[in-house]
């Protein structure tokens, strides 16, 4: 992979969008890998008891996945300097083979003098944003 050059990046640049699917199996896999075994991510009975429509995706699974729109484009995930997100809406994961789909787009909002860029990510599920204020600061190449 090659790191994107600052010369080719300007404010308003739109990164290639991607769609990500989350299934129940993805939630189980993330629970194991992260150590987050909160029952609302794998037990439908308990999820419904606390008023959720179904089990929901871990916010950190969503946050960890959607940044691929930036890092796949950037060419080097080690050049992420800052990453922040607000978890606004839970993503219910139905018990189907397809699971739930999240459409992710991203746009460059700032280019700084030292070759850093600030990128804003939009993540949509069922026509509603599931993350807000999702921004990534990256170090671009020379």
């Amino acid at each position: 992979m090659t790191l994107i050059s600052a010369k080719s990046v300007s404010v308003g640049l739109e990164l290639p969008p991607q769609a990500f699917n989350f299934t129940r199996a993805d939630l189980v896999r993330y629970a194991g890998a992260s150590g987050d075994f909160n029952v609302i991510h794998w037990n439908e009975r308990v999820a419904k008891e606390v008023g959720l429509p179904s089990v929901i995706a871990h916010g950190m699974l969503t946050m960890g996945t959607v940044i691929r729109v930036v890092t796949d484009w950037l060419g080097d995930p080690g050049k992420v300097l800052e990453y922040s997100a607000r978890f606004t809406r839970p993503i219910p994961i139905p018990d189907t083979d397809e699971g739930a789909s999240v459409l992710v787009s991203a746009k460059v909002t700032e280019v700084l003098d030292d070759g850093q860029a600030v990128i804003s990510i939009t993540a949509i599920h069922n026509e509603l944003t599931v993350l807000a204020k999702t921004t990534v600061t990256v170090q671009l190449g020379p």
Partner: peptide
């Protein structure tokens, strides 16, 4: 308790 926001500031990977 629910997780409302998350931010990372990396000095290096």
């Amino acid at each position: 308790v629910v997780h409302g926001e998350q931010k990372f500031v990396h000095s290096r990977p």
